[in-house]
Design a protein around this nucleic acid. Structure first.
Lengths: 112, 112
DNA sequence: GCTATATTTTCTATTTTGTAGAAAAAGGAC
DNA sequence: GTCCTTTTTCTACAAAATAGAAAATATAGC
């Protein structure tokens, strides 16, 4: 895609989920947030692969947390939005808004 | 992607452009509409590749027109949205709306 | 008819995204 | 130490995005 200039569909979804979760964003909660809001099941592998790509692009940051004493398990890796990521997701949103703007959608509804 | 269950980012853009253009949607005008609204330059190859994919999925239909006497050139291939396409693009829009809904975006603006 | 020119679509190749799911880590409980 | 539980890693592959040169094909002029 040129050089990854624009956010893909799933990348957008992941970033918005991150924004909603705030301090509590890590693999499993991110996946849950997406399933809840988008009403769409996603594999955990898809979430991490996307998160890794987003991190490489400088849109999100991650760090390992100390293991909490909740009940065992590997340490969580938390994620947060980086300034560049916030700009990117805003841009993606605006672009879509501009695309939809002024559409006389009803004229297409006849076909339904 | 499962089995192409969801629309990709550019697929959405192309379909919305199609909706705006109505009767006058063919390769070149679609590309122009995207550049105008999304403010993003796209190669003609990207447009057609996406249109072909969308047609294979049954989201858009296309047909060759008689060559108009405007000034030579190959016959135009017009495109239009199919009912299934309209449903798909609506769904994609709703999904994104649900993702954005209720986001306390300001709390993230601090970083900017 | 031939040539130049304009318009639009095709084709080919490659990179980036999207996706799944099994395997690996690693801490707590007993 | 062995067995759960939670979470991340890894591997492999399918689909989407993208570019741009090449091919088609019609009109105009001579």
């Amino acid at each position: 895609m040129g050089k990854g200039e624009y956010l893909g569909e799933f990348e957008q979804i992941v970033m918005i989920a991150l924004a909603h979760l705030g301090e509590n964003a890590y693999g499993m909660t991110i996946r849950g947030e997406i399933e809840k809001r988008a009403g769409r099941s996603v594999s955990i592998g898809a979430v991490y692969a996307t998160l890794d790509r987003l991190e490489r692009k400088g849109y999100v940051a991650s760090w390992l947390a100390d293991p909490t004493a909740e009940r065992g398990g590997k340490a969580k890796r938390y994620f947060s939005l980086e300034p560049a990521g916030i700009i990117a997701i805003q841009r993606a949103r605006e672009m879509l808004t501009n695309m939809w703007e002024g559409l006389d959608w009803d004229s297409h509804m006849r076909t339904l």
